[in-house]
């Protein structure tokens, strides 16, 4: 990882040695999220039998994806173990910790409490979807600069909650940030820095 001093408030890439590469082809994918096709209507009613898998279409981080899923599979399981997007973490699978927070149509929700079949046709954004190509996005950069994490396991969820807040409210106060991450436990206790990162993320985004 390399922290690029030349670009205040941004520009963290993994390529400390080759920072010239990798920033060119960026803009497109992030814009792609915003301009993704409107969710397709739900498919016509049909019963999916219990032990069958069914093909479902997901829009994940701007890309359409088809997966085979059982009705009981959670969106979290499909993201992590089927698609392989492991940035979204499992902490409890009970809707109690927030490590699995993703945006569904721009709104933070627990992927563990969402059936994959219920996410069909919805726009899903995970922490990987906040990347600006190879660079960390503004919320991620703010978390880096404010050291808003320790072990990093709750962090993708915290980031998604802050991202969700900023998409709705671009200039939140500390209390709004606190409330926005109040469904995300951090056992390392990095809360104070998370609040600060929320503030900084807003200013990075508004630049």
């Amino acid at each position: 990882m390399h922290y690029d001093e030349k670009k205040p408030g941004g520009g963290v890439t993994r390529r400390g040695f080759m920072q010239i590469i990798g920033t060119g082809a960026v803009g497109a994918s992030f814009a792609g999220v915003a301009m993704a096709a409107r969710p397709e209507p739900a498919p016509p009613e049909k019963m999916i039998p219990a032990e069958n898998t069914v093909k479902i279409r997901l829009h994940v981080n701007g890309a359409k994806q088809e997966v085979l899923a059982e009705p009981r599979w959670s969106l979290l399981y499909v993201l992590r173990e089927v698609i392989g997007l492991t940035g979204t973490k499992e902490g409890c699978s009970r809707g109690e910790c927030g490590a699995c927070t993703v945006l569904i149509d721009n709104i933070p929700r627990y992927a563990c409490m969402t059936l994959a079949v219920e996410a069909e046709g919805r726009k899903i954004t995970t922490v990987e979807g906040l990347m600006d190509g190879e660079q960390l996005g503004p919320v991620q950069t703010a978390f880096l600069e404010e050291d808003a994490y320790q072990c990093g396991y709750c962090t993708p969820g915290q980031i998604m909650s802050v991202e969700g807040l900023l998409r709705k409210n671009p200039d939140p106060g500390t209390d709004e940030i606190r409330t926005a991450v109040s469904g995300n436990l951090c056992r390392c206790g990095a809360y104070k820095n998370i609040f600060r990162a929320g503030k900084k993320a807003a200013s990075l985004k508004n630049k």
Binding site: M1, T126, L136
Partner: peptide, 23 residues
């Protein structure tokens, strides 16, 4: 000196592979 973590990129981008992420 206050220094951001050297593995911050991995932890924040979702690319850090925790044992529970192994497949």
């Amino acid at each position: 000196k206050p220094t951001p973590r050297v593995d911050g990129y991995e932890r924040l981008s979702g690319t850090a592979v925790y044992p529970s992420d192994i497949k």
